[in-house]
């Protein structure tokens, strides 16, 4: 059971450098205690719905999902759709974190019930700031339904 600890934040990010930068930003904001990082949509779904490699995970939803839009295997939109379609996972706050500022992605995400949509700035300071704010907001300020 030690293998699976309590998870606060699920980071779904295929790009390791982006993942590292994100985690660093979260760490700086003291939000990095329980971060799990998965690298593609399929893995994310396995984690969320406790199947495959995550079948033994305790039945506990993460408090926040940071979801990249463009992912290998199953893309972010599809993952979002599945999360929001399931009664058990619908309440998990999902923040889309993406490089794309394309309008259609924003619209599509909000249609599917995303809780927030964050465009990753190239500037690292801005990036850190954005990620930290999003994490803080959803982790601390927003009272998740029990």
């Amino acid at each position: 059971m030690d293998k699976f600890e309590k998870v606060d934040i699920l980071l779904v990010e295929d790009n390791p450098t982006d993942a590292e930068l994100t985690m660093r930003a979260l760490r700086k904001s003291k939000l990095a205690n329980n971060i799990t990082w998965v690298k593609d949509g399929a893995e994310a779904l396995e984690f969320i719905f406790r199947s495959g490699a995550f079948a033994e995970r305790p039945d506990e939803n993460p408090k926040l999902i940071l979801l990249d839009l463009k992912l290998p295997k199953v893309d972010g939109i599809e993952v979002l759709k599945r999360i929001k379609a399931d009664e058990r996972t619908r309440i998990i706050p999902v923040v889309m974190v993406t490089s794309s500022a394309e309008g259609r992605d924003v619209v599509e995400s909000y249609k599917l019930g995303v809780n927030s949509y964050v465009v990753k700035p190239v500037d690292f300071d801005q990036f850190s700031d954005t990620v930290a704010k999003a994490g803080l907001y959803w982790m601390l300020m927003n009272k998740a339904p029990e």
């Binding site: 790009n15 450098t17 982006d18 930068l21 660093r24 490089s99 990753k120 700035p121 190239v122 500037d123 690292f124 990036f127």
Partner: peptide
């Protein structure tokens, strides 16, 4: 944008 962000971020 992703690699650019990496360049900037890691710098």
């Amino acid at each position: 944008r992703s690699p650019l962000r990496a360049v900037d971020g890691f710098s």
